[in-house]
Design a protein around this nucleic acid. Sequence first.
DNA 1: AGCGGAACCTGTCGGC
DNA 2: TGCCGACAGGTTCCGC
Length: 271
Amino acid sequence: MPELPEVQTVVNGLQQHLPQRQIKHIDVLRGDPVQPIDPQEFIGQLCGRTFKKIARRGKYLVFHLQPRLFLVGHLRMTGKFILATNAAPITPHQRVRFYLDDDRVLIFDDVRCFGTLRLYTQLAQCESLNLLGPEPFSSSLTAKNLLEKLQSSRSMKSLLLDQGILAGLGNIYVNEILFQAGVHPERSGHSMKPEECTRILRCMRRILKQAIQLNGTSISDFRRVDDKTGTFQNFLKVYGKGDQPCLSCQTPIKRIVQNQRSTFYCAQCQN
DNA sequence: AGCGGAACCTGTCGGC
DNA sequence: TGCCGACAGGTTCCGC
């Protein structure tokens, strides 16, 4: 499910309600997300702590708790955080319920059980976060240093999906960015020209910003914390549009597979 | 180095 | 109707 705009949408929703809320008790309905630690230890560590703030890094959610502890979550494909009243029924894919001191419950729901919830006393201990490249909106990210990072024979599709190069892009947004920037997904990184990097950076920021404003893309099951859908799916230009005419030139959009993921592009507009 | 393939686990959809 | 394969927004590991 979630790429940067969807995770940001979830974080924005949680940030409105969680700060100052204390965790009263926790039910781990299925332990997969909290492994490798034992569910009882997970519960013991978190109960009684208070949420201070919720932030995003790449596709990770970072919950800051008081007394000092960090809960780092990743939604992978189908994870969701939902805020509900504590009488909300337990449905089949709920994994963890965090009962709060205001009669609400924060529910971590995950159909495919790929999502993760990890605890750290210091964020620097979280290796996954340490390996991430810069945020797309970071002011220190320029077309010039993006060009340097792309010096590789790998495809642009593969490079932009690499979280160590840029943090937060996934399959949908990489497809859209390459389309709007007019760059063919099979181009190698080291074939990029400076002006193409400039276009990629500009398109990336414009697309991500718009997607965040529209609360993300809900293709099958992404939901905001209040269970509403995002609306950016209505603005996708190539993702999922195989055989449909390109909006710019009417050429049918092609679908290929790269790194075992679907890539959609216009062979006419993307060179 | 980098790619393909498989794995993690479950659900949905289209075709026959 | 029912079964089967393909596919799904992510990440990681293994082998060539």
